[in-house]
């Protein structure tokens, strides 16, 4: 289809407008984190680093940051183990219900968040588990498995098995082949999947709020404090921190996976 210069320009402008729409609110939060005024008026009143100091001094914020990181690491580790195992099983074997496994892995993220949250909360209550770090990790792990699984299985499908066969033919046993051939070819895919799982867990609130009990992750801290007018500037700072800690892993993951896939940049 021939596109006239006018049509191209229109498309380019529309794309720019949509990108502006996507990034404007995020930029605004960054700006307000440095705003001297307690009330988020536009334009901002002046530049200050005061709220960063306040946030750093708050033991509540430090505790919730620490809980968020612990939960994200825990969920990522569980997701790495389960996602990799499932990817190997689905890729290497054909068995009854193989398609169901992919479906089951996607389900926790495809079903509405409130459903996942209340189902897990009810289950934890029924078996009498105390709400806290453990329940958060279990809940996050169920929907983080999919990121590792997707990355691992995509890599497995792209790598040829002949390398493994060569390794076996040259006398390596299963473990040596796994360590020296299979794992190195999967490494970057697992890293990308793990980073995404970390970001997903760090960012989550809909399910977390239902299974965290009295504990506060960083998003829950924001949720509990956004209504307090006194806290508004500090909330902006914590929001900035929360977005940085989830954007960075996603950015790294996108770089790793596209480079490793051999996509020219």
């Amino acid at each position: 289809m021939e596109r006239s210069p006018a049509a191209r320009l229109l498309l380019r402008l529309t794309t720019a407008a949509i990108l502006l729409f996507i990034y404007l609110p995020i930029v605004l939060i960054v700006v307000y984190a440095f705003n001297t005024n307690r009330v988020p008026t536009w334009p901002p009143a002046g530049f200050t680093l005061e709220w960063f100091g306040r946030a750093a001094q708050s033991s509540e914020i430090r505790a919730s940051l620490s809980l968020s990181i612990q939960a994200a690491i825990g969920a990522t580790l569980v997701a790495l183990v389960l996602g990799t195992l499932a990817a190997f099983a689905v890729h290497r074997f054909s068995f009854f219900g193989r398609e169901t496994v992919s479906f089951l892995v996607i389900l926790p993220i495809a079903l509405p968040g409130i459903v996942t949250g209340i189902a897990l909360a009810t289950a934890f209550k029924t078996i009498g588990v105390q709400f806290g770090l453990l329940t958060i990790v279990v809940a996050h792990a169920t929907f983080c498995v999919v990121t590792v699984y997707n990355n691992a299985i995509a890599r497995l499908r792209r790598t040829s098995r002949s390398l493994e066969e060569a390794s076996m033919d040259l006398g390596a046993d299963t473990w040596q082949t796994l360590r020296h051939v299979t794992f190195p070819s999967l490494r970057t895919a697992l890293l990308a999947g793990g980073l995404l799982a970390f970001a997903l867990s760090f960012d989550e609130i809909i399910v977390t709020l239902l299974v965290a009990g009295p504990q506060q992750t960083l998003p829950i801290w924001i949720f509990n404090n956004y209504l307090r007018p006194n806290q508004a500037p500090v909330v902006n700072v914590v929001a900035l921190l929360a977005i940085a800690l989830s954007v960075i892993p996603v950015y790294l993951a996108s770089r790793i996976s596209s480079e490793a896939a051999g996509v020219p940049r």
Binding site: Y23, L200, P219, A242
Partner: peptide, 27 residues
Amino acid sequence: VAVVLPLWSGYLVKVYAWRVMLLNGGF
């Protein structure tokens, strides 16, 4: 990358940012 970044990160922050923008007399 520009589209994937906000897909996975900053959910609550974005909602909160919109709240700040939408408030009466806000942005």
